[in-house]
């Protein structure tokens, strides 16, 4: 057996991933950034139009509506997913508590399902004709769930919230890393219940929660595509036509690749901006408790 040097081995191991990153991510990203300033239908050659695409996009209400739909989703889904994962982790972290094992499995399983499968199950649950949830809610509110602006938006949010398994798992692991003795220290001083949570749990989990919320923000900017296409097609009246959905429509339905590229670039820049703002706001969180107790 021939022996490879460490560097050669490393290069061989990394090669497929570097190739993938180059061909599937970097090149398309650069091309997209380029197409963002052209008019291109995929058949005739791209025509350079500079910032005209953006000027046109900003002039129409559709982009504004789409930004509103995206914002509505992100603002609801990110905190719900992160806090939901935290809540479940705190409920289920004890190793020997009753039903904790079952609970942990149940909290994680929805994450394993493919997006499309989850969306189809939800479509059955909320479809206006015989969906059990939709029928019950319609009796209550009088209007079909998916035909209501917020009904449709909340449904998409709910789908995303159910798939919080990864955040849950990370938070669960982090909670188990918190030394029990720190709780003893706080209990000796009279902290109980919410005091323990505020003084010990929250600061010790803060770096993980900060990181999870940043990751969740990035994911949330993109994750709506499949459920929206399968459930609402962006409706009613564009209430759920989030940016990725708009990109998809412009590019693959209307073959206006220039517009789609411009929107994709906008989505990317917006994501970077939001994560940067979030990092500044939560900077203390990222650093707090980043080191383990000594001894």
């Amino acid at each position: 057996m021939s022996r490879l040097s460490y560097r050669t081995g490393l290069r061989l191991m990394l090669a497929p991933f570097l190739l993938g990153a180059l061909v599937l991510v970097l090149v398309p990203a650069v091309m997209t950034a380029g197409y963002a300033f052209t008019r291109y239908d995929g058949l005739s050659p791209a025509q350079f139009v500079g910032f005209d695409t953006y000027r046109d996009l900003l002039a129409y209400a559709e982009l504004r509506r789409s930004l509103a739909a995206t914002a509505a989703f992100v603002v609801l889904a990110v905190p719900l997913r992160v806090l939901g994962g935290l809540g479940l982790a705190l409920l289920l972290h004890r190793r020997r508590a009753r039903l904790a094992g079952t609970g942990r499995a149940a909290a994680y399983v929805p994450t394993v399902l493919p997006d499309a499968a989850t969306a189809l199950i939800w479509l059955w649950v909320v479809n206006p004709v015989y969906g059990p949830l939709a029928v019950v809610l319609q009796v209550g509110t009088g209007s079909p769930l998916l035909l209501d602006r917020w009904g449709a938006r909340l449904t998409i949010v709910a789908i995303a919230v159910f798939a919080l398994g990864e955040g849950f798992l990370v938070t669960l692991a982090a909670r188990r890393e918190v030394p029990q003795v720190l709780y003893d220290v706080a209990r000796l001083e009279g902290a109980r219940g919410t005091g323990l949570f505020r003084r010990v749990t929250l600061p010790m989990l803060a770096p993980v929660l900060g990181l999870l919320s940043a990751r969740d923000l990035v994911v949330s900017m993109q994750v709506t595509l499949v459920p929206v296409l399968l459930l609402t097609r962006g409706g009613p009246l564009g209430a759920t036509k989030t940016l990725p959905v708009l990109v998809y429509e412009r590019g693959f339905r209307e073959l206006r690749f220039g517009d789609a590229a411009a929107l994709a670039l906008l989505l990317f820049l917006l994501t970077v901006l939001l994560v940067a703002v979030q990092y500044r706001l939560l900077r203390r969180w990222f650093r707090a408790g980043a080191v383990q107790t000594g001894g």
Partner: peptide, 27 residues
């Protein structure tokens, strides 16, 4: 009674000042 725990159980996110004053703060 005051307790000094094994491994000292200091809060990693707090400064020495905040660690020492932790109990007073909770109270």
């Amino acid at each position: 009674v005051a307790m000094v725990f094994q491994g000292y159980a200091l809060f990693p996110h707090l400064t020495v000042r905040e660690n020492v004053g932790f109990g007073l703060r909770v109270r």
